[in-house]
Nucleic acid binder design. Structure first.
Length: 466
RNA sequence: GUCCCCUUCGUCUAGCCUGGCCCAGGACACCGCCCUUUCACGGCGGCGACACCGGUUCAAAUCCGGUAGGGGACGCCA
């Protein structure tokens, strides 16, 4: 058992998006690899924006992906007393002070500074203030001045900030609630987090947090800042780029292992390897191989991976996963063809479960109409002759596998002097309604000869009525 | 504006630390051919990148300096 303790700390203000999922995955991978502990902590200090629904959505996303946490979920809202204690401590030690500046006033100063091209940091008005009126106030951290604050990021290398850049941040709001940067430090310290892996939008917060660790007398953990995920236009991934929620990918028919595999390769690599089982990921993952630059989310590659995992998925599990996508289309498998056979015939042809469900509909619902354009390529007499010949042979057919049925079609062809495409395509249309379907032998094998005959007769009736 | 970070094919990336094996390798996508009863799968091949400029060196994608572009942070949000 190693001492490694990592955490994933989302704020419950929305769903678990792919960026968060990747951060969680990297944390989880490292914990599993080193036999460490993976902790889930919900950062809900912003009571206004945090919702129970978001918490549930995040947990659901984590569970779907199989990213099990060892401790938690912990909620920062349960720790308010603890944070207050530390605020008092810093106040007593003179490491923090009360600030009576109003929010409006600060806002004005910020804008002015921006306009004049200065860094809009707090000007320290209340820093050395002698009087302590009994008035509304926030508490600010007295940031040490001079020198620089640096750290060795596991991904980005050494990063240093001049202390002058760091102003006195608010650690407690007027309403008495603590702020993010303060809570993270206390929680990470009290949970004995050894390695903080998080999005790289936190790089700028890190030096402030380090000062806080030092002021509080806590050991500073290691940091690993993961680059962001961008949309196709290289802008930060957001809703307008399409789906960003992990659960949306589930609903679109992606397998969790495919998303995981895609996510792990986004920003990380292991030589030329592309396909990783969970075990291989755990074994091969290393933060040192995480890239330093942002990466673009590419659905095409995700689809390719998904197709790969569908092809190699256990048929029974796939059938289970497919069920909800079928019922979404009002398809009942009861009394219809064996779902296992259906899935097998489609496994190599679908990139998502949605697509597979779409392609499976015809097995359960006989075609209501036919692809007339495709049908028009054949003479009516030819079609009737073909259907008649096939019906005749199928009615005495005892074949129980696709290859045997295909053999029968070869015989029909040679007996009548037809080429395979002249027979296969019409039959395919009669059975499925369209031209894009599994092989004839496969379809009939799944459907059963009786149902196939029924559909061929329907097609004959349809042609005759024209 | 200030600070921090980033920059190899359209995209994900290998190589960079420890210069030469790299006129830069793999994957997705795209194009072509083969297989084929449609659609797919699969096989083979093609297209395609070291941001730019300068320096160091016998030799630079790799080291150094600068420029440009992109992103992030600058909140009583997280």
């Amino acid at each position: 058992m190693s001492e490694l303790r990592v955490r994933f700390a989302p704020s419950p203000t929305g769903y678990l998006h792919v960026g968060g999922a990747r951060t969680a995955l990297f944390n989880w991978l490292l914990a599993r690899k080193q036999g460490g502990t993976f902790i889930l902590r919900i950062e809900d200090t912003d009571v206004e924006r945090s919702t129970k629904e978001s918490v549930d959505a995040i947990l659901q996303g984590m569970q779907w992906l199989g990213l099990e946490w060892d401790e938690g979920p912990f909620y920062q809202s349960d720790n308010f007393e603890l944070y207050k204690e530390y605020v008092r401590k810093l106040l007593d030690e003179g490491k923090a002070y009360k600030c009576f500046c109003s929010a409006d006033e600060l806002e004005r100063k910020r804008e002015l500074a921006m306009k004049e091209g200065r860094k809009p940091k707090y000007d320290g008005t209340c820093r050395e203030r002698a009087d302590q009126p009994d008035a509304p106030h926030v508490v600010r951290f007295r940031a040490p001045q001079g020198g620089e604050v640096a750290f060795d990021d596991l991904i980005k290398g050494r990063i240093a900030f001049p202390a002058e850049e760091l102003d006195d941040l608010v650690i407690q709001r007027t309403d008495g609630t603590p702020t993010y940067n303060f809570c993270v430090v206390i929680d990470d310290a009290s949970m004995r987090i050894t390695t903080v892996i998080r999005g790289d939008d936190h790089v700028n917060n890190t030096p402030r947090q380090i000062q806080l660790y030092q002021a509080l007398g806590f050991p500073v953990p290691q940091f690993a800042h993961v680059p962001m995920i961008l949309g196709a236009d290289k802008a930060r991934l957001s809703k307008r780029h399409g789906a960003t929620s992990v659960i949306a990918y589930r609903d679109m028919g992606f397998l969790p292992e495919a998303l995981l595999n895609y996510l792990v390769r986004l920003g990380w690599s292991h030589g030329d390897d592309e396909i990783f089982s969970l075990d291989e990921m755990i074994q091969k993952f290393d933060v040192n191989n995480v890239g330093r630059s942002a990466s673009v989310f590419n659905t095409e590659k995700l689809l390719w991976l998904n197709a790969h995992y569908i092809k190699n998925c256990d048929t029974e599990r796939l059938a289970d996963l497919l069920l909800p996508h079928l019922s979404k289309r009002d398809v009942t498998t009861l009394g219809g063809p064996d779902l296992m056979l259906v899935v097998k015939s489609l496994q190599e042809r679908a990139q998502t479960l949605e697509e597979m469900a779409e392609r499976a509909v015809f097995y359960y619902n006989a075609p209501q109409g036919y692809d007339e354009v495709a049908l028009a390529k054949f003479e009516k007499e030819h079609l009737l002759a073909v259907f008649a010949a096939v019906v005749e042979r199928l009615s005495v057919c005892t074949a129980t596998e696709p290859a045997a049925i295909d053999a029968i079609f070869k015989e029909i062809c040679s007996e009548n002097g037809w080429k395979m495409p002249q027979v296969g395509q019409p039959v395919r249309i009669a059975l499925s309604g369209g031209t894009q379907a599994p092989g004839i032998g496969e379809i009939i094998n799944v459907l059963g000869c009786d149902e196939a005959i029924r559909r061929l007769q329907n097609a004959v009736a349809f042609l005759s009525s024209k």
